[in-house]
Design a binder for these strands. Structure first.
Lengths: 162, 162
DNA sequence: TTTAAATTTGGTATCGTGCCAAAAATTTGG
DNA sequence: CCAAATTTTTGGCACGATACCAAATTTAAA
């Protein structure tokens, strides 16, 4: 149940650049194989720019890239993307606690998220009681916060790890 | 009293790069004229690196630079630095609300602060009730949060500005 | 005033990100 | 099933932020 892969704790949350994090989150919400053009249109950048970033992400094991075909998240990529999404949601929730509108929260979060550590997010998440509602999901897409990547205090091996 | 300079509202909080913000905050805490070497030692970078960044900051009106002599904050620079310091404190306080230690709060804040808008900080500040205590000040230096840069809701011209 | 120390200049480098043009592969339409 | 259209990739280049080094310049010190 709560037996997450222990690999998870090796994530610091600071390993990827802003754009790469955006791509991973996008791929996660997209599901299956995604083509270069889909990404380049979603982010309004040149396809060649996408090709280069996904090459690096593939190199680092976050995704599988079949040239001229598209990319899919690897298992590690899914785990990481899940964390990124959750981080975004936790931070958005946090800003909303201080009176920012959902849009403002999302905006501010988008600028800072890649610089917030997993360690901090885990603490914040438990401090918030592991919330299931995110303040900033696209309407209709009522995705709940996924705590799989969370470093729950109740985990038996927490003591060792800390 | 609360008649801040209206220039203040022209600050978005996103105009300066991380290093530049660090320099301004450092200069503010230092007071008078500061020499290149002081900065380069404080941040452990080559003096030539400092020279270049302060040249840009001077160019943009944040400081006065007398070559071979040192730099001082201009009035605008002081205002901006004051805002940066406050932003750091508000964000640090925020993280501490979610169970992060002072050190963790300060660390996380240092990575994100330059990407958080003044608008967000102002909202957060009033949501917090304009706190005067910062969680992350260097020990001994019990600097209180300075709200001069704050966009108080009680300001008479708030309506127009919003 | 000659020497030492601090500062600035000019050159170069890396990382993240982006564009463009040309080449390569895939898809489509006849 | 093959030529044309579309997609993707490659290679080159660029820019902002940041950094280093070596050489030149200025200031300070002996």
């Amino acid at each position: 149940m709560t037996e997450n892969n222990s690999k998870n704790d090796e994530i610091t949350g600071l390993e990827l650049s802003p754009r790469k994090v955006s791509y991973l989150k996008f791929l996660l919400t997209k599901g299956e194989t995604v083509r270069t053009t889909e990404i380049s249109e979603a982010f309004d950048v040149d396809p060649s720019t996408v090709t280069k970033l996904i090459a690096e992400l593939a190199e680092d094991g976050y995704l599988d890239h079949i040239p001229y075909r598209g990319v899919t998240l690897t298992d590690a990529g899914k785990v990481y993307a899940e964390f990124c999404l959750k981080r975004h949601q936790i931070l958005g929730l946090m800003f909303s606690h201080y009176g920012l509108t959902p849009e403002e929260s999302c905006d501010e979060t988008s600028r800072i998220e890649t610089f917030v550590s997993k360690r901090a997010i885990d603490r914040m998440c438990s401090s918030m009681g592991h919330p299931t509602l995110s303040c900033c999901v696209k309407p209709g897409e009522a995705r709940q916060i996924n705590h799989d990547s969370c470093f729950h205090e109740s985990r038996p091996n927490l003591i060792k790890k800390l």
